[in-house]
């Protein structure tokens, strides 16, 4: 990333989101799981209900986040947020694949970087997925 020379910069104040990112493509890979039955009630209302399918249990059983290696790219797409505060790849997929995407951030600089040797970012990270 460091070979890139020009900056698109924007301010990040308290409670603002970091929204401009280089990203990989979102990769899809079909996920096969054992055939299984299950039981859950039909939703008799209009609100969202959470029902964990056997396919999800199978996915979680085999998923170990600690063994996931951070990808090296290529990071060749820029995510432009416009009004969105999220880095959002929400979509609709009829059959169950795993999906993954990676985003190395913009650089983060303190506006007073010359005066500060180091600092911490205190941030809230929200994730849906």
């Amino acid at each position: 990333m460091s070979s890139r020379k020009e900056h698109v910069s924007y301010g990040i104040g308290y409670d603002d989101s970091i929204t401009r990112w280089w990203t990989t493509a979102v990769h899809r890979r079909p996920f096969e799981s054992p055939q299984a039955t299950f039981d859950a009630p039909v939703n008799m209302g209009e609100a969202y209900v959470q029902i964990v399918y056997p396919v999800r249990k199978a996915f979680l059983d085999q998923y170990d986040p600690d063994t996931r290696r951070m990808p090296k790219g290529p990071f060749d797409h820029i995510y432009f947020p416009f009004e969105n505060n999220r880095v959002d790849f929400t979509t609709f997929i009829h059959t169950p694949p795993t999906i993954s995407g990676s985003m190395p951030s913009p650089g983060l600089m303190s506006r007073k970087a010359e005066a500060i040797r180091s600092m911490s970012i205190h941030a809230e990270a929200s994730h849906c997925g």
Binding site: G11, G13, L108, S110
Partner: peptide, 10 residues
């Protein structure tokens, strides 16, 4: 402390 987000491009 205000930060500056920087998207590096070619």
């Amino acid at each position: 402390i205000p930060l500056q987000g920087v998207l590096l491009v070619d």
